[in-house]
């Protein structure tokens, strides 16, 4: 039990929160970076190797394309369906191999990235599928290579939904980072368990909730802003089809 009326209570709380927040941001930030670096190409390859996709026949082999697609599809589904708590425990040997330990914020990054990558890859896949195939044809008609199409058409045109997908991904990484914290140690989840739960400090609990809520809100606000910045949505749909009709029929009084 912690005594809120103790003279160093608030500064102690502040200290603990600061460290916890720092660790959370570190875990989330690094795993997010890994997620984007791996998940983006993964999503692109997932769409590309589908029938009729840009990479349906890598090295001229449709078989290879189909195989790649099946394998990635399987991995992504597996990653998305295993409950995080099980995944985390199952990954301990792997984490130890990569980081050297399975305790602490750095070790937490491994399961966080592993769970977020397939999630984000799906988001990328969905976003890229939304890109009008006409745009790909336009680039092809200009003599673009497949990589040019990816870099100049698919990714830029899918940027807005991908940013929104990333924002959803971050939210779940933050969510899982709290869970990791309770097991591996570190971050705001750890604070909530050690102070809020084990030592019955409601104030710590509330403070952790407020900080996490604030982080999520700020990130989502940022994502929405960026997504809007890159959207360039068209004006009221099909205005150019309605207007002539109006002009011909109504405005001339016909």
């Amino acid at each position: 039990m912690i005594d809120p009326s103790a003279p160093d209570f608030w500064s102690g709380l502040f200290q603990v929160l600061l460290v916890g927040t720092g660790q959370t941001l570190y875990m989330v930030g690094v795993s997010l970076l890994i997620t984007v670096v791996v998940g983006l190409p993964l999503g692109i390859v997932l769409v590309g190797t589908e029938a009729g996709g840009l990479f349906e026949s890598p090295f001229g082999s449709r078989k290879l394309g189909r195989a790649i697609n099946r394998i990635l599809e399987f991995i992504v589904n597996l990653g998305r369906s295993v409950p995080f708590i099980i995944l985390m425990v199952a990954l301990i040997p792997f984490t130890r191999l990569v980081v050297g330990t399975f305790i602490g914020p750095t070790a937490a990054i491994v399961p966080l990235a592993v769970v977020a990558i397939p999630f984000f890859a799906r988001m990328v896949e969905i976003a890229i599928k939304e890109v009008d195939t006409g745009l790909i044809e336009a680039a092809e008609s200009l003599g673009a290579t497949r990589w040019q199409i990816v870099a100049k058409v698919l990714v830029p045109e899918a940027l807005s939904p991908m940013i929104l997908g990333l924002s959803t991904t971050v939210t779940s990484i933050i969510n899982f980072s709290a869970m990791v914290g309770t097991v591996a140690g570190g971050g705001l989840g750890d604070v909530a368990v050690r102070y809020g739960y084990q030592r019955y400090s409601t104030i710590h609990m509330v403070a952790v909730i407020i900080v996490i809520f604030a982080i999520v809100m700020v990130l989502q606000g940022l994502a929405t802003l960026l997504a809007r910045r890159f959207a360039h949505k068209s004006r009221p749909a099909r205005a150019e089809k309605v207007l002539p009709a109006l002009r011909d029929g109504v405005l001339t009084g016909a």
Binding site: D132, G134, L135, E137, A138, E140, S141, L142, G143, A144, T145, K152, V153, P156, E157, L159, S160, F230, A231, H232, K233, S234
Partner: peptide
């Protein structure tokens, strides 16, 4: 073929412009 396509411009019914550019 890509090189040859550069000599052939194409315009489309639905314009197919990149919205982000």
């Amino acid at each position: 073929l890509r090189a040859a396509r550069r000599k052939i411009g194409m315009v489309f019914q639905h314009f197919n412009l990149l919205a982000g550019r």
